[in-house]
Amino acid sequence: MRSFYILKQTVYNIWSARVPVMIAIITIGISLSVLIGIAEITYKLYSTVEEIRKEFEIDIFLKPETSSFQRAIIERKLKNIHQIKSYKFVSKEDAAKIFFKEFGENIFDILSYNPLPASYKIKLYGKMTHVEIVDNVVKRINKINGVDEVKYHSDLLILMEKYFLIIMIIGGSIIFVLLLAMNIFIRNTIKLSVYSRQSQIFILQLLGSGKIFLKSPFILEGLFEGLIGGFFAAAILYFFHDIAYETAIYLFNYNLKEINYLWGISIAVGGIIGVFASSTSVNKFVRIFAKDDY
């Protein structure tokens, strides 16, 4: 009986304020579609950067006279550097094969000897590939006997960190602003409902109604707006998918087809925002003041 009453009041609230409710749903839909699009792009860029970090390599070139005994010592010392995930030895012969693969010419045919040094290719743990950490590791490697030179793309790391931060800040800010906007729209429509039902709330309070019973129709109204807004957002994203797909490929080399669970995410986020915004906006209207609150 309680559920029936709450549902009936929810439907009545929505129907009475159908224009503001519609506006809120459209706003949520548009905001949420932009938000999810940006969140996906930001996440994809984040994944790409993480991928680059995982593939990041340091080349350690050995002095020509380094013996196999010395190499064993080098490898032991590399194992002691905890930032290093793995290392791979590249002999002079392997280096010549790589040269042939990359340039299509045999180094012996050009110079009649192999000047390419033996080396180690080092991979660091993903979280360790920050400029300062890498510099530290390189300093330690340089001190090892038998190491001639250490090379890595420090410029790539610096660039990556700089732009990654900018993308995160911009993406995060837009998401924050959109969440705020949706929150405000839902709160406003719920407040309209609450204002027009203040006398009803007062009557229910005089009858001894609990907070949950008072709040439920308004929370359900917020949930309804959020869910329908989320559904609308997913529909917008699918509708504009082709345009977004081409644009994303062109601008960010980003494949929108990888968006998974779009409907689920969109509707769930809409619902959560709806419940959050409505329950916080209705709180102060359903409060009963006890003596201590005065």
Partner: peptide, 21 residues
């Protein structure tokens, strides 16, 4: 009295208003 007890109290009182409410 607390807010919770006020609700309980009101569930045991009947109120009739001039404007019916």
């Amino acid at each position: 009295i607390t807010a919770r007890k006020i609700r309980k109290l009101r569930r045991n009182i009947g109120i009739v208003f001039q404007d019916f409410r």
